[in-house]
Amino acid sequence: MHDRGLVCSLGASYDEFTLNAEFAVNEGELACLIGPSGCGKSTTLMLISGLLPLESGSITLFGSDLAGTAVHHRQIAMVFQEYALFPHMSVAENIAYPMKIRGTKRAQRQARAEQLLELVSLAGYGKRRSDELSGGEKQRVALARALASDPQLLLLDEPLSALDAKLRSHLRQEIRRIHDQAGITTLYVTHDQDEALSIADRLIVMRDGKVVQSGTAQQVYHTPNSHFVATFIGEGNTLPSTVIASESAGANQVIFFRPEDVRVHLGEIGEYLPHLSFAASVVERQEFIGGRYRLQTRWQGHTIICYSARPIGTSTLNLSVRMRDILRFDEAKS
């Protein structure tokens, strides 16, 4: 099913760290590799690009095995966290660099460079030097340069991490737009879950050098396959499974549910579908997060987070969550 796209089975070991990751990305997809820092995201990109040696496993891109191919013959472009614009070249020269290596004629190079600058909304920037650009502009030039090498696969290593919050959310839409226009299969590394959720066709969640789950944003968010994934992507409430009366004590299980699935009752909890109720939860804090209120409550020694459209005037609340919105996991390791 994955013969059109990227299929990886990566094995490599370093001092105190072993990477053993398997995943696939379909043709034309924008996949986000996400995980806590130190989980091996950047190393994965280095292995795919060939900048680090693969010890075992394989990398298959559109049906051909790349493990023995030199970096510069892989047709995999990479945008680095530091952008790495060559400081001794102008913007246009930077973008023309990969075309020059392939022996593209000068006139064609210039035309293509202008076209790419237009694509990244930087028309007319060709003559500038890289130290005259802002962070966001450098990022877009680095993207244009990577696209100029006509890659089969584009790797982006935390491309927005050096930018401020407002620019980040604007640029991630830009990256999505540029990806859709260029149609290149893309693997995007980030540690920012909002960024990943908003931009990706596919999320690949990593932990300790392994891929723990891969799927669409909705799949990963609504049906996480482990407590780690559930808490890493989005916010959630974790309680021991013993709070459900019918469950036997001693089973090393936890229950998990999202704050938005918690119903806030100003009065008594009425009769409705099967649910778990948390009567008389004490409101410890409420903060306005724009559009709604985030409540931190305490129920029998457990913290429960939920949302309310209106500010809460009372000190205790009745909360409930429907049984079908509750997930069960083995004892949380983290």
Partner: peptide
């Protein structure tokens, strides 16, 4: 990362050294 970047853009190791590192 300059040389690494040049490598992923299609430069051989020796070309990246001559075209990127030497001018710097």
């Amino acid at each position: 990362v300059y040389a690494n970047s040049a490598r992923t853009l299609g430069s051989s190791a020796s070309h990246a050294f001559v075209a990127i590192e030497l001018p710097l």
